[in-house]
């Protein structure tokens, strides 16, 4: 087996990538069904603060469903999920609290088309964090600069390219100053030329010490940034390892098959 090519030519300051002992997300025996279909089977996953986890696997393997359980966009029916010390139950207040601390970036951006870029970014801080508008705008501009599109602040999402929209979506999440970021195939809907600009922003985010869980097919990104790669199939975690071992010496047959299909 071979290592994938790196996703960007950025050099990463690995001294900044520190994993702490504190637990950010704890999933214990999580099960989920869509009607009779068993999507997640006994998922056990403990994420420490500062970890960058890439989740790979064939489509339908439950990887998106798993991370969407972490901010309760999907309900789990059995097991425990504890996020940032808060256990997700039916209590809607707990759910809202968790969502405040967990940012999410979607495959199709999910920006709000009737609001400007700046309004997209300030909405959460103003309405959820009750921040004064001027302060929220100041923070939003800082993050828009970090994702390198401050000049687009007054435009509407429909006027931006896919890569730009996804960078806005990342900035929008960051404006809530989350402790954990979830990425659900953030580059899958982008033109090939725009994948890199989004990955660069994500790498910068990793360097800032953010805890990240990322469902992606960008194996180069996994090699560069992840401290752990998780491989899922049929609703189960099949294999996990540090990236180099994962790519060079996969142990499960399904993993070997998957990697041979996507790496050349």
């Amino acid at each position: 087996m071979t290592l994938p090519d790196v996703a960007t030519d950025q050099t990463i300051d690995t001294s900044k990538l520190k994993v702490s002992d504190e637990v950010a997300v704890d999933m214990i025996g999580v099960n989920k069904w869509y009607a009779d279909f068993h999507v997640l089977k006994d998922i056990d996953l403990r994420v420490q603060k500062g970890e960058r986890i890439v989740i790979a696997g064939p489509s339908g393997s439950g990887k998106s469903t798993m991370i969407r359980c972490i901010n309760a966009l999907e309900e789990h029916q059995k097991g425990k999920i504890i996020v940032d010390g808060i256990e997700l139950t039916n209590d809607l207040k707990k759910v809202d609290e968790v969502r405040k601390e967990v940012g999410m970036v979607f495959q199709h951006f999910n920006l709000f088309p009737h609001l400007t870029i700046l309004e997209n970014c300030t909405l959460g801080p103003i309405w959820v964090r009750k921040m004064p508008k001027a302060q929220a705008e100041e923070i939003a501009m800082q993050y828009l600069e970090k994702v390198k599109i401050p000049e687009q602040a007054k435009k509407y999402p429909g006027q931006l390219s896919g890569g730009q929209q996804q960078r806005v979506a990342i900035a929008r999440s960051l404006c809530m100053s989350p402790h954990i970021m979830l990425f659900d195939e953030p580059t899958s809907a982008l033109d090939p030329e725009m994948v890199k600009e989004v990955l660069e922003v994500m790498i910068n985010l990793a360097e800032s010490g953010m805890t990240m869980l990322c469902v992606t097919h960008e194996m180069g990104f996994a090699r560069q940034v992840a401290n752990r790669v998780i491989f899922m199939d049929q609703g189960q975690i099949i294999e996990q390892n540090e990236p180099e071992e994962f790519f060079l010496h996969p142990r499960h047959e399904r993993t070997k098959l998957f990697l041979s299909q996507i790496l050349h």
Binding site: L73, R99, N110, F112, G124
Partner: peptide, 27 residues
């Protein structure tokens, strides 16, 4: 996705409806 985007920011039901969903739906 609009509902999910709003929820992921931590907006409550009425905030999500008033700020995100209804303005677009009524339009």
């Amino acid at each position: 996705g609009q509902f999910e985007g709003a929820k992921s920011l931590g907006l409550g039901y009425w905030q999500m409806m008033r700020l995100i969903v209804l303005p677009q739906a009524i339009t």
